[in-house]
Every structure is written in C-alpha cells, then in structure tokens.
C-alpha cells in the first residue's frame, strides 16, 4: 500500500526533472563517427573507386537490399558497373561494412534519409560514391592483392617478391 503511494509520489516528482527528449530537428544530437547511418562508397588515396565488386556486402546483407554488377576497365580492374542500395529496405545493421574487404562501403552518421517518394530511397552508384576515403585512410586493396589490374605490376605489390623468371636455371 505504501509502495503504491510512494510510486505515485515519485512519479509526481518527475514533473520537476529535466526532460530527456532532445528537441530535434532544432537541436542536432551528437553522433559518433562510427554511427550507422547512410551508406557511402569511398575512394582510395589516389581517387579511384575502392569497390572491387566482390559482392560480399550483398551477400552479407540480411535484407538483400544491395545489388551490383561487376565489370572491368581496360586494365582488368574490377569495379561495379552499377551499385544499388534500396534504402527503403536497409536496416543499417552495418554488416556490409564489416564484410567489405577493401573499406569501400562505409556507414556514415547521416541518418536523415526521409523522402516523400519511396522511389527516391533507391540510391545508385552516383549517389553513393563520395570523393574521400571516409573513416579509413590509406588502404588500397589492389596494392595488397596478387592481381595486376593496372595499379601495380606483378611482383611489385606490398609483400610480393619479383616475378619468377622461368627461363633461369639459377633458382
């Protein structure tokens, strides 16, 4: 019985507490850099697309809202021909970012994605691609991979020995 009255009293006292609600949108809350908001595609330090169209983000996506097609440039460099995210389906779980082997796909603290038209929630590569490196600087997948796709020649990558000379008897 007393506890009921006490509850009522304590609840009443909350009338004099500070309010937790933030007056968004007049006041913008602070969001940490690793907040999981709008997804972007980044570029490497040389300004080339980081995405190698490996499809891992699409495979990791639990709502299957990422769709892309791989293609190659004249050097054989893989990049996405199109890259589409249906944000009306996206749940901002960040699994795509975790799956990405090249730091290409990153989530940003921008969460203001409201649209009147659902069709506007479909983002193509031109909407996703930014000019910078995003959160992770300095990584260039093609320098670490074994393939020669116009970024480095065979045997000249990080962690690579020069190519084997098959005609030599000295090895």
């Amino acid at each position: 019985m007393f506890s009921i009255l006490r509850s009522i009293w304590l609840t009443f006292l909350h009338a004099f507490h500070k309010r937790e609600t933030v007056g968004y949108p007049e006041k913008k809350p602070y969001l940490p850099p690793r907040y999981r908001g709008r997804i972007v595609l980044t570029r490497d330090s040389e300004g080339n697309e980081r995405c190698v169209a490996c499809n891992l983000c699409a495979a990791a996506c639990p709502v299957d809202c990422i769709s892309l097609q791989a293609t190659e440039d004249e050097n054989g460099r893989r990049y996405p021909e199109f890259f589409r995210i249906n944000f009306s389906r996206c749940i901002f779980c960040g699994l795509c970012e975790e799956a990405c082997p090249t730091y290409a796909i990153q989530l940003t603290p921008d969460f203001e994605l409201g649209e009147y038209d659902r069709q506007s929630m479909v983002y193509e590569k031109e909407h996703l691609l930014i000019s910078g490196e995003g959160k992770y600087h300095g990584y260039n997948f093609y320098k670490n991979a074994g393939v020669d796709m116009g970024v480095k020649a065979k045997g000249e990558g990080e962690n690579e020995e020069p190519t084997v000379d098959l005609k030599s008897l000295l090895k």
Partner: peptide, 16 residues
C-alpha cells in the same frame, strides 16, 4: 540460400 540483392535488383525499375 545465399542469393543476394532480392530487394534491390529491380528497385531501379520500381521500388515496389
């Protein structure tokens, strides 16, 4: 089972 992109592959035509 791992087929991806179901909800995005045709989204350029219609999001529905």
């Amino acid at each position: 089972m791992r087929f991806s992109g179901r909800t995005a592959m045709n989204a350029n035509i219609s999001v529905h």
